[in-house]
Structure formats: C-alpha cells, structure tokens
Design a protein around this nucleic acid. Structure first.
Lengths: 209, 209, 209, 209
DNA sequence: AATGAATGAGCTTTCATTCAT
DNA sequence: CATGAATGAAAGCTCATTCAT
C-alpha cells in the first residue's frame, strides 16, 4: 500500500484542491447535502475525477477529518506544551483552539458538520466507526486530550476537586459550540467568546481557599 | 380546517405511534439517514400509512420538534419560575434541563439530531428556516432563554460582570453536549455531569468580593 | 342491474353535485391532473363519498361524457331537425353547437379535455375505448353526425361535389377549436367565430354555377 | 456551459434515440401517461440512463417540442416564402403543413399530444407556461403565423372581408384535426384531406365579385 | 349513506459507484 | 490522469382503490 507521501506532486495538488472544495461545500450545505457531484462542481472538475482520486465518498470525509485534525493539533499542541502549570495549559488549550477556529472557519465548520452528521452505512456515528477513529489517533489527538490537563490539575491540587471527564466534556462542548455560532454568523466575536471561556474555566477550576 | 385537537382517537394514537418510531429512528440513524420507509419499518406499517397521517416528511419533523420542545418547556419553565434569585434560577435551569434529558433520552437525542442536522432544500439551517422556527416560537421557548437569567444576574450584581450572550452560548453548548454523550453511551452519568455543570456555572458567575 | 332512473332522489342529487365538481376541476386543471381527492375537495365532501357514488374514476369520466353529450344533443338535434335544406341544416348545426358551447363553457371544456386526454389503462383513446363509445351511442349522437348532412347535400346537388368525411372532419375540428380558444380566454367572441364558420362553410359547400 | 452543438457523438446519438422513443410513447399513450420508465423501456435502456441524458422529464418534453417545431418550420417556411400572393401562400401553408404531418406522423402526433395535454404543476396550459413558450419562439414560429397571411389578403383585397383571427383559428384547428384523425387511423388519407382544406379555404376567402 | 384508514403500485428525481476508453 | 456513460438503489410523494365500520 502506498502512503500519502508516495503521491506525485500533481496528485497531491489535486487531492488538496478537492479537499478544499469538499470543505467549502460541507461547511455551506452540511454533511448530508454534500454530494460528490456538488464537490466536483465546486472545484470545477468532472465527478469521475473526484472518485479517481478518492475512490469513495467516505475516503474524502476521512481525509477531511484527518487534515483538519492535523492542522488543529499542529496549532494547539505546541501552545499547550509551552505551559508549565495545568492552569496555564488549560487557558492555552482554549485560546489555541479558538485561534484555530478563527483562522480556519471553513475547515472547522466542515469538521463539525462531519462529526455530528456522519453515519456509517450501518448508522454508526463518526466516533464509533472504525476508519474515522484511526484517522484521529494517527494524528496524535490523545496528546491533546484536555482530560489529562484536568486530571493533572486535580492531582497536584492546582485545581479544586473535580471530575476530569465531566470537565472535559463541558469544555469540548463549549468549544464546539463556538463553531456553531461562527457558522451561523461569520461576524461572531469568537475571540471574545474564547476569553469568556478562559475566565469561566479559570474560575470553575481554581482551588478554593 | 381541523385543528390538532379534534382528530379521532385512532388518528391520535397512530400519530403518536409514528412520532415515537420517528424519534427512535432519528436518534439511532441521525436526521439525514432517516427515511419515511425506515420509520414505517420501525413502526411496522406501510410507508403510505405514514404519509397518510403526515403528508410530508417535514410534517413529521416539525411534529417531533414541537412535541419535544413542548415537553421540555413544560418541565423546565415551572422549575425556573419557582426560583427567586438568578443564581437559583440558573441552577434550576441546568438541573431541570438535565432531568428532562435523563427522562427522555430518545426524544432529546432526536431533537438534537434534527436541530444540528436539518437543512432546508436550499441548505439553510434549522434556525434560519421558517417552518421549524415557528414550531419553536409557538411553544414559548423564549420564556426559557437563559440569556435573560444571565442579564438579570448581571444587572442586579448577583453575578460578576459577564457577557450574557457568551454565557448563554457556553451553557447551551454544555447542555447539548450532555445529549451527545448520552447518545454515545446510555450508561453515561448525565446527572453527575449536570451537577458538575451547576458547580461550574455557580463558580463562574458568582460575583467576586 | 340498476339503471340511472332507479336511483333515489338524494343519490341523484349527489351524483349531479359530484359531476359538476368534476367538470369544474377537469376544465381548470385538465384531465390528467384531476384526481378524485381534488374533486372531493371541490365539492366539499370526503374522497370516499365520491367513490361510494361512482365506484371508479372511470365511471365519473363516463358519466361526464354522457351528460355533456346528452345536453349537447338535446340542444342541437331539434335545431337541425327544424331545417329543410342541407344548407340550412349545416348553418343550424354550427350555430346550435356554438350556442351550446357559449352557454356551457365549463362542461364543454371538460368534455374536450377528456376526449383529448383520456386513455384507458392500456393506452386507448376515448374514441377507441369501448365503454365511452357506448355512452355516446346511447345518446343518439349518430342522429347528429354532420357527415350525413354533407352526404345529403352532395346527393341533392345542394352542395358542390365534396368529400362528406373530410368536410365533417374539418367542421368538427373547427368547432372543437372554438372550445380551446374559449378555454384559453373566457372573453373570446365565440359567437363571432361561429358566424365566421357559418360563412366559411356556406361558401365552401355552395354548388358552383 | 456547453451548448447543444458540442455534445459528443455518442451523446448526440443517445439523445436522438431517447427523443425518438419518447415521441413514440407520447404518440401512443398520450402526454399524461408517458413516464420516464416507459420511455426507457421503449428504448431498451435503464430509467437512469434517460435521466443521465436529460436530467428532468420536462427537458425531454422541451426537446421534443423544439425538435418537431424546428422540423415543421424548416419544411413550411420556404414553401410559403416562395409564394407571391396571399392566395398562393395560404394554399402553400396548408399543403406544406399537411406534407409535414404525412412525413412525420409520430412526431406530429407527439407534438399535438404535448400541446393539448401539457399542464404545468399549477395547471397552466402549454401556451401559458413560460419554458415551452420559449422553445416555440426560438424556432421562429411567428414567421409562420397564418394570421398574417389572412391580414395581408384582406388588406390587398385578394380576400373577401374577413376576420384574420377567426380564420387563423379555424385553419389551425382544421390542420390539427388532421393529426387527430391520422393518430386514430394510420391509413387516413391525409393528403386528400389537405386538398379538401385547400379548396375550402380557397372558396371561403376568395373575394366575391 | 357516508367515511376514516390503509395500502400497493407507480411516479420523478438524486446519488454513489463501476467501467471502458 | 481523466472522464463520459451507465446503472441500481433508494428517496419523497401521489393516487385510485379496498375495507370495516
């Protein structure tokens, strides 16, 4: 099997072009309304060309997920890694995630559309379907799982006693919510929202004296 | 024109039966993958029977939204209304919403699937499309908008200075996130999560001394 | 088997009511777009009531044809019978047909919509399908066939030598054409058109000196 | 956008094949009973192939109308243009129209079935619906409108005083009537009928001394 | 005499995918 | 590399008709 790096330059370019088109279409119409024909239209190529490069609709979706995930991790991982304390890490996590969204509106929306709308032929959600799972893991998402930040903060008593899982869930939901608002309204002050989140989680995790 | 209330008993029962089936299917497969045929299968009747009672797929969706919204408001409105202070109202809002979800897992999931997955033929989201909007308004959703709680709390200085809009967005996202987790895992300790949310928002809104 | 005359008074009235509604709908929407449901709507009764009185859509169509035919013959036959010469008969035929159309716009349009649009399940036209044929014959249409007027006129040399069949075809087409124009435009001067037809056929049949 | 002329050879052939099949089916079953499935059957291809080449049922209908109209105009326009006097033009109009029908039985029947049977979704007739209107106009039908012949003949006193509109209506109806007879009976002596029409309209328009 | 409920057959259309060139 | 052509499966929906009450 050929890895992504074996691809010729033109092949790479075409794939990139198709993925970009796919993200634009998904962000605009939603996952369900996105068809291969619509993507081909957006890119300005024939439908068969899309399938020549991706073999199945699923492959496009996986590639989009992998790409966006990768970009996000690239952006967030160093930001978090640079911080010494859980408190700082948490703020960095939030700010870098928000910054990523602000700078990558379309990919972020596409990603969320997929995560909430995708179902495998047998009805499984994106996070239960195996292939998409793998894309995520390969990109080292686990490194970034905020649950570990909460766990560490609790352990070191930098944070008040709290449930790392619940906290993670609340935080992820609040961050994903930013994307919905941003999708709805391109003028949404996403940075302002991000700062409010920083405050909320700072106050909500601070160990009480 | 006949209003909903003068339907025959059998008609009422069938509609209920179909709506229940629809909710189960939507919760399992997601909005996009839900077809009339699949709903008919679930209920064990012919496809045409579904259309005899609902006339169009959209009518089913609207009916589901209206029903779930209605039930949720019925549950939450009195709980919030009973509280005197914004702080108490906020906690009541969270707890009653969580309780509703806990007691109505399938409907709550179906509702969320619709709200996030619905697109009108031209690609508009549920909150931009007119018909679904109306279902919501008719049920008096506005009464329950948590933004007013945050606004009131800020005004009376019961809360620290904060952005009611951002706070509402974060809260709604966190609550909807509970539904996603619950959908993923029926064993999810949604009440525990709710209590963590109560704590988070208590700490995050409390006016600093 | 029960003939039409055995029907109770109410039954008769209902049938009449349904037929009138059917004619209105057919005239407005065309034969193909006319559904039983649409007729029931027009009359303001339940769909099943229509089928209770007519058993099948075809029966309604046949009844419409028979009714309109009957009315037309009633109007035209005496007018033609009153004339002594073929020349007068021809003029009377045209004028009485036009008068019938002018006074029965909706039924005439409905009739024409059926005659041109009807196909039996196997694709036969109205004039080839047996049951509709019978309706026509029963009403004594043959008495009125203009072909006999042309034949008589040719025989007695009141008319120039001509083909009775071709003449009949041209005349019937020109008369049916009046209905199309009338359908298109309720203000159409159908009587003026009729007089022009009288002139045309007078000139076209007159024996040359 | 690709215009009709730069379609591949195979594409052209398939379109032609489908149109021919469509005309046969329409001529046989009438416009209303014609379904895409039936056309596909007639041609011996899959239903989806038809839609691959035409995208919507309406496109087929429009293509049929445009094709037939085009052929008819091609045949009739020069014949009429070659004549000097209105009297000759009128005879040429009738003869060339009849000749077209005689040589194109199926297309002519199909055309008439569409023109009389077509209704837009809201019940509008072909002549009131926009898209079909355009097909006709583009083909320069107006050039051939017999009304102008009658008007000219009246103006120059080549014809007796008469109403050009009524005359046109009678003539068009008589010509369309030929198609109905021809549809009913392939052995119908349509040329004989045409000659009778020539005589009728010659006699009926001739200026009286 | 009337009608609500149910249903199968059929309709137009969309779409992912395969295949030959 | 690229693509036109073909196709089966499935979607939403309409409608005449049957049946029990």
């Amino acid at each position: 099997m050929r890895s992504t790096t074996d691809l010729t330059f033109t092949e790479q370019a075409r794939r990139r072009q198709i993925l970009d088109g796919a993200m634009r279409v998904i962000a605009e119409l939603g996952y369900a309304q996105t068809s291969i024909a619509r993507i081909a239209d957006e890119v300005g190529i024939a439908k068969s060309v899309v399938l020549y490069h991706f073999k199945a609709k699923n492959d496009i979706i996986e590639a989009v997920v992998a790409t966006v995930f990768g970009t996000a991790v690239e952006r967030m991982a160093p930001a978090v890694a640079d911080c010494a304390t859980p408190t700082e890490q948490l703020a960095a996590y939030i700010r870098s995630n928000i910054a990523f969204i602000a700078d990558n509106r379309v990919p972020a929306i596409a990603m969320l559309e997929i995560v909430t709308g995708y179902r495998s032929p047998d009805g499984l959600r994106a996070d239960q379907a195996v292939p998409l799972q793998e894309s995520a893991d390969l990109q080292g998402w686990s490194v970034l799982d905020p649950e570990s930040i909460f766990a560490e903060g609790t352990r070191t008593k930098a944070f008040r006693p709290l449930s790392p899982v619940f906290m993670k869930n609340a935080l992820r939901a609040a961050l994903d919510g930013a994307v919905w608002e941003y999708a709805r309204d391109p003028q949404y002050d996403i940075t302002g929202y991000g700062e409010e989140l920083v405050t909320i989680f700072e106050l909500a995790t601070r160990s009480q004296r």
